[in-house]
Simulated scan of single mutants.
Amino acid sequence: MKRLQPVLTFPDFQYSPDNVEGPGCNVDPSEVTLPGCSCPSHSCCPESCSCLQTRGQAYNSIGILLDLSRTDSGYCSPVFECNALCTCSDTCCNRVVQRGLRLRLEVYSTSNRGWGVRTLEAITRGTFVCEYAGEVIGFEEARRRQLTQRSEENNYIIAVREHAGTGSIIETFVDPAVVGNVGRFLNHSCLPNLFMLPVRVHSVVPRLALFAGRDINAQEELTFDYSGGYSNQPPVELLSTQSDAAIQASRTVGLQRKACHCGANKCTQFLPLDLSILN
């Protein structure tokens, strides 16, 4: 007898392509706070653009990420795009993530992991796929939400931790559970085909952009590592990766670890937790 797949109920949430200000957030993500360039041309050139000279060129002429070696290193620098104060056009090669979703993606019911996202077209390595957008919340709110979560509920909170020099650490918490976009449906994989980078456009609040880590075929499910890694190498400091078993056990008392069903050869068996929120 054929086993019937359980019917999923589509979640009730408010769709937003961009981050929105949530409880505990002290900076409006939509506020323009970064300086712009004064380039007279439609597309900026590294020789004359103050944005590219100060922060480096992240994309090639067709918007493909240039430095793909960042997926093999322990840390990475955020990407800075031209913004609303720049005089270049909307078609400037340094405007990629801000243009939003350009690919044909489909939210679908997977066989054993609830909802998932697959691509309806082939994607070239280094291509921006989608953003992980939601409510930008404060540390205490993120901690409260995680500790009050029921075992049957999904944890959507992503924590980005950036070193700003002189011992300063900038933390950003994004939760798309109530307000979010297609990124909230992406499943975790211990061997993902997407990786996440913080991208700053108009605001100091980073946008969590997902790029293709390899060439991806049409109809393939899109996944990323919830702990921030890619190919077992963490490209950006996202979720805490402390390995001391005793510390992890003490911080996760009362929390239900969720099993990982990604099917990868090196599957860790459990979905990662953001242990830092539980301190």
Rank of each mutant, 00 (worst) to 15 (best):
K2Q: 05
K2M: 12
Q5I: 15
V7G: 02
L8D: 11
F10C: 01
F10N: 01
F13G: 09
D18G: 04
N19M: 09
P23H: 07
G24N: 11
D28H: 03
S30F: 09
S30E: 13
V32K: 07
P35S: 00
S38F: 00
S43P: 04
S48P: 07
S48V: 11
L52E: 03
R55S: 13
Q57C: 14
D67M: 09
S69T: 15
R70W: 01
R70Y: 05
Y75W: 14
S77M: 11
F80P: 02
A84W: 05
C86A: 09
T87G: 00
S89G: 10
R95S: 02
V97D: 05
L101A: 07
R102M: 11
L103Y: 04
S111P: 10
R113T: 07
G114R: 10
T119R: 06
L120K: 12
A122I: 04
G126M: 11
T127V: 10
F128P: 05
E131L: 13
G134E: 10
E140R: 00
E141L: 06
E141D: 14
A142P: 02
R144H: 14
R144W: 10
L147D: 01
T148M: 13
Q149M: 15
E152W: 13
Y156M: 02
A164Y: 06
G165V: 05
G165D: 06
T166R: 14
T166Q: 12
S168C: 07
I169G: 03
I170M: 13
T172M: 07
F173A: 01
F173Q: 07
D175I: 08
V178Y: 02
V178T: 13
V179F: 06
N181S: 00
G183E: 01
R184M: 05
F185R: 02
L186I: 13
N187W: 03
P192M: 09
P192N: 00
N193P: 03
R200I: 00
V201M: 06
V201T: 15
V201H: 10
V204P: 02
V204E: 06
V205K: 05
R207K: 03
R207H: 01
A209K: 09
L210Q: 01
A212H: 06
R214D: 08
D215L: 11
D215K: 01
I216K: 07
A218W: 01
Q219E: 13
E220R: 05
E220L: 00
L222W: 03
D225N: 13
D225C: 06
D225Q: 07
Y230L: 06
Q233A: 15
L238Y: 15
A245W: 01
I247N: 03
Q248M: 05
Q248F: 04
R251E: 14
V253H: 11
G254L: 12
L255V: 07
C260V: 04
K266H: 13
K266Y: 12
C267W: 10
C267L: 02
Q269V: 07
